[in-house]
Design a protein around this nucleic acid. Sequence first.
DNA 1: CTGAGCTGTTTCTTTATGCGAAACGATGTT
DNA 2: AACATCGTTTCGCATAAAGAAACAGCTCAG
Lengths: 260, 260
Amino acid sequence: MKDQYILNSVANALQILDLLSQQESLGVAEISKALGFGRASVFRLLYTMEKSGYVTKNVHAKYDLAIKFAYYGALVVDRQSMVQASKPVLEKLRDTYNETAHLSMLTSSGKLVFLSKHYSGSSLQMYSRVGEERDSHNTASGKVMLAHIEQERAEALAGGFHYEPLTVHSITCAEQLLQELEQIRQHGYAVDREETEIGLVCFSAPVFDHRGECVAAISLSGPTSRMYGRQDEIIQGVLAASQAISVSLGFGSQRSARRA
Amino acid sequence: MKDQYILNSVANALQILDLLSQQESLGVAEISKALGFGRASVFRLLYTMEKSGYVTKNVHAKYDLAIKFAYYGALVVDRQSMVQASKPVLEKLRDTYNETAHLSMLTSSGKLVFLSKHYSGSSLQMYSRVGEERDSHNTASGKVMLAHIEQERAEALAGGFHYEPLTVHSITCAEQLLQELEQIRQHGYAVDREETEIGLVCFSAPVFDHRGECVAAISLSGPTSRMYGRQDEIIQGVLAASQAISVSLGFGSQRSARRA
DNA sequence: CTGAGCTGTTTCTTTATGCGAAACGATGTT
DNA sequence: AACATCGTTTCGCATAAAGAAACAGCTCAG
């Protein structure tokens, strides 16, 4: 009895979808080998998912994720109220500094996920795509979110992270992370100083909803050369933007319980 | 024995996802009522899908599609080679006429789906979102695609459509549709003259890949007032754009078998 | 305060269903 | 022509999914 409520076939089907997200155009046998399910089972799983419109079979009997994912994906993103609320503010932020602006939130597993991206005109800019997940502990927005959720949850998450140093500036342990979270709370913003990639700097500030909960974070990202020279100015801009979004979500209109 | 290869639990799970796409924040009991499954079964299905990251449970034990859909959706769209190839061309087309440009393709069930949308700056523009599906028989791009796939498949699809007239200009039967497809093949482009909505006009042309297959269609949409005045000019622009995209997909580089 | 009527979760039992093994037919390769 | 490998189909058995019903927690009305 591994997990008493897991439905085997459903979990297997979803595993196939995950596999198809990593690699396109897979056949029955390939999936069978990769996941260790019988060929017949894989066939039936794919057959069911094709009839339901979640995968498509091409002429060579290779399978792919269906375009339905694009539609559902767009729905999911649009339903996050902060995406709508942040759009004009982030566009203005992007235009003011001509750097890429993001809106992000935490997943239930404590990773950071991008909800929207507003491209700078520059040809040198951060790679990312909406829906993508990153480690929270080496991104500015991830650290901002961790700093503003319940302390005990943040500590639990921090204890579970995998601190692989990506650059010489990376955070290497939970203690270091928790210490920085304290500073972030004091300053009201977070910085990623080339912690994931040399040359990439990122400033981030929290977004609060009507209950005073931190539900998202915004960030402005760009290359070292362009970011450090006008650091103070940019931080002020990011902070102002985050506050504007919070207000449009109803923050401060009631007596919102702000955490210490 | 309805469909011998359908896996019940998998199909049920996917039905729940479809339901969650229509309505957000549903509880176990609500889903149970809507789909006619037992409460226990719904709970187990949702439990499995949550562990696999396809749905999220919020604090009130209400379920929603997870953000994973956004990521997978972006992957699916990006993998369609014509999305990349068409981007610069469609941006230029949009800028030239300041109207909304779309790239679309047919689904396996013969509906039209939007692969990319390039917004015009105008405040009056067509509503649509990437991934959304429309009936093929009353959209310009749908008709273009039908006109350029295998004749017998087009006829089979045309016979299966549901011809509900949306405006006085709508196509009302398969014969009328097939007749128009013939004209579209002769002219090389299709027009939607307020067939879905009074006031909305749309011009579309086919995109061919390296084998000479019609794999997509592009379109330019706008209000009657702005479209009809420069009709000929716009049609030329759309045709030129579609040919440019076809060429960048390798059309014409080999001896591509063009259909009659 | 209490009881009715909702939840979501858990347990249990029975049956149907999903599973693997193996045969089949079609393709393509050596 | 023999072989390998693919997707599909069949079959029988053990398992796992489904439903009924008990349970616990909640809200609300009287």
